[in-house]
Write a protein that binds this DNA or RNA. Structure first.
Lengths: 155, 155
DNA sequence: ACATGATAGATGATGTGTCAAGGACCAGGT
DNA sequence: ACCTGGTCCTTGACACATCATCTATCATGT
């Protein structure tokens, strides 16, 4: 094996490790707050938000999958579990016999409406409070740039 | 329910969503590259790196858990699976009858040594190539600040 | 009408993460 | 010697993620 690997410099490594660590910690913290405040997981929350963003409160599987960037299969499993808990329902699609809609239920709405304020508060408390508005903008800019780069380098 | 929630401004929301999305995409991409290049998951990789950082190639469960910030139980399950695959081994601890060491095996070393260069290359290609060195420093600074804040606000 | 390939979604197997409960051992006081 | 409480690690149950595979339906060309 050729050993001309461009290892990370100490500086790069420090930034990289901080970034990775932050992701892990943040996901864990927000997830556990959501869980104890509202009995929702991160994926549950993302799905309910996407559905309430729709006037009709429903979406085709495909569109929902695209909106939150879940793979088909992952979404299918996730929706299956959420149906069991009464948060969403599955509806036949008249125009396309293969397709199906996911609809938010009344209970799903109650749950998300109760959860959202606490979640936003947690985001403010855990993240926004740690940096200035300008810095947060910078973070957003960098994130968008890297995402764009990732999508261009797509597999 | 009092409705004085400080919702995110459009600007804040844009940054927040980009940040979250980036985390998800990046974890997914790096995980899948690791998986196809080396048959390792992110957690596998983190553990092998932590063990090779030790001269002895071994650590107590506690210390390993602290080093990579895994909960005890999570680590225990993870190590169990890795033992099955021959990447690490469990060793009794003479000084403390309750404790145990995790040791990297020869096979574990081979695996990580083959995986690391490709992983670093992926990090460069997917992330470092998208931003300037100064920007990456900034990212690191912000990440460290938020982590510090998270730890101070610890549960 | 009918083949053919593409698309929508479901399903089972396996690996991963979290929580709650448990078993083994240690340390300190009595 | 014996509690008692804490520490170290394991275990089982369940939610989640990914992969490969499957079925049903659609859309097109003949």
């Amino acid at each position: 094996m050729n050993d001309e690997t461009q290892w990370l410099s100490p500086r790069e490594q420090r930034s990289w490790r901080a970034f990775i660590r932050l992701n892990q910690k943040l996901t864990a913290r927000l997830g556990s707050e959501l869980q104890s405040n509202a009995k929702l997981s991160g994926p549950d929350f993302a799905i309910l938000v996407a559905l309430t963003d729709e006037p009709a409160g429903r979406l085709r599987f495909q569109e929902l999958a695209k909106a939150i960037e879940f793979e088909q299969s992952r979404l299918s499993h996730q929706i299956g579990r959420m149906i069991k808990r009464g948060l969403v329902a599955r509806e036949e699609c008249a125009e396309d016999g293969r397709g199906a809609f996911v609809t938010i239920t009344a209970q799903g709405r109650e749950t998300i409406e109760a959860a959202a304020p606490k979640h936003v508060a947690a985001v403010r408390r855990l993240v926004l409070d740690a940096v200035s508005p300008e810095e947060f903008d910078t973070l957003g800019d960098l994130a968008e740039r890297i995402i764009k780069h990732l999508d261009e380098t797509a597999p």
